[in-house]
Amino acid sequence: MNDGPDNDAQDELDALAAEYVLGTLAAGLRTEVEHRLPHDAALREAVDAWEERLQPLTELTSPHAPSAALWPRIEHSVDELHTRPASVPSTPWWDWLGLWRGLAAAGLAATLVLGTLLLGRDAPAPSYLVVLVAPQDKSPGWVIQASDQQTIQLIPLGVAEVPEDKALQFWTKGADWQGPVSLGLVKPGQTLKVPLDRLPPLESDQLFELTLEGRSGSPTGKPTGPIQFIGRAVKVI
């Protein structure tokens, strides 16, 4: 047997890629794979190979003509993608200073929640805290707790209302990043744990937000829907 640890790791990676493409990975692992893909060449290669292997199985389904309204709807959405920058404030939301001035009140909420979270902690590692507030009334809706720089927890303070055909999508953007990166879909009222090991380390003022998107998330990979909750990371000593 020449199965060394390297072969084991390769087999594991290949098994993960295979079940990702096959579709049997549970939601959490699927999200993890999708986060790793842009940065993990070995995983990407394994996934690509499985896509090619299994793709002929799509021929087992019968074609189904779309309704006549679908193409015009797609065209309309493509138009919207191109006109949006002109129809909303010309700076993207993450550079929207007015919003940030208004969010100063959230600082108080952060202090309060922080006090609660720190109680009973005997080994305070350097950590970050974010309170996500609703942009309209600044009411806090979620807290993000990061006790190390690799994992964050998104903790609900209540149950957000989400329309049946929509989903909340979680995003983050550091100061020097080109745009926000998706951290996955969020279920109202449920704590979400997100590994950040494929992103740069957390930093002060890093932006987090939840937007309302279609039920399978933003079609473009960038936020397209209205902001529901938003906040910046505060370093906690």
Binding site: H64, P66, S67, L70, I74, L81, R215
Partner: peptide, 19 residues
Amino acid sequence: EPALAEDLLHDAFLRIWTG
């Protein structure tokens, strides 16, 4: 679900366009 499948096809074409 036919309506959902069309929603997904719509999203897929947007993602193809932008990606």
